[in-house]
Design a protein around this nucleic acid. Sequence first.
DNA 1: TAACAATGTTAGTTGAGCCTAACATGGTTC
DNA 2: GAACCATGTTAGGCTCAACTAACATTGTTA
Lengths: 156, 156
Amino acid sequence: MARYSQSEEDYLETLYLLQQENKVARVKDVAQALDVKMPSVVAAIRSLSEKGLVEQEKYGHIELTKEGIKVGKDVYKRHQLLYAFFHEVLGLDPEVSEEDACQMEHHLSPETRERLLRIVEYTRACKDDKVHFLKRFMYFVKTGEMPEPCSGCKKC
Amino acid sequence: MARYSQSEEDYLETLYLLQQENKVARVKDVAQALDVKMPSVVAAIRSLSEKGLVEQEKYGHIELTKEGIKVGKDVYKRHQLLYAFFHEVLGLDPEVSEEDACQMEHHLSPETRERLLRIVEYTRACKDDKVHFLKRFMYFVKTGEMPEPCSGCKKC
DNA sequence: TAACAATGTTAGTTGAGCCTAACATGGTTC
DNA sequence: GAACCATGTTAGGCTCAACTAACATTGTTA
């Protein structure tokens, strides 16, 4: 999978999400979603089209190619992962989590991505576990002090 | 503190680091550090100078102003924090940690920054604690399974 | 001190990605 | 079916941040 610019990734992600929701994406929708003007969308689509990522019929719908879907979906997955990490693990607001995910989704290496996924999974699993990482971490966030050892462990 | 572009932040951070090491920064050093050509540096310095962030004497040294130091240092602190998180908490290679920190340092909101700092602190504190988060997390990374409850807790 | 090498600067170009203004198309309504 | 409105497109311009080529300055060395 080739490398794409931040802007290109944003267009592909937006197109992917619009396709999921509406089945059709129009220039106007993309412009609204990305808060840019329609001519900017037209230029971006032309460029993506030349790279084989989207297909356009004049004055018609915009459709992602197979490759376009792959990239758009991948960006969105990175976004979701970052959001989950910020919101679920770090306990940040939905708004902040969303905003930072938007920015950072373009800069996530495969290695970091894998580890972030692990820590999200770990945190989720911990909720059913005796040693509840998130509880302990949030206690630390609030008080600045370490919780008692095994405070969350009913066995002790 | 006003907002600065990614490129501006990179120049200020580089100048800050060069000043820390050498006491003087020259156009050539900055160009090397950022892997750009000297005319690009000259243009960037002129722009930063107009914004009151650096001072230049023609054909001479480049110095950060008070404000420039503040911004450059702040960027570097964000970098260090991200590096620590990637390396110490997620257990990623120094190389990957460094590279991702470079990219993401420009997109870190104050809220996320605060929480990342907490999780790094928490992880560090855990090393002296009975319930060793990092050990447990790394066990999960390697095996895909949750460690035994309180496996790290000597009291149990 | 004259020449040369290293460094810094200026001028002009490029490409990405946005914009506005003007024009084109297509679907809805009288 | 003609007029109108929403949507799409083209043309042209702007800013940012890089580049090359050519020129200027400084400092070192014969």
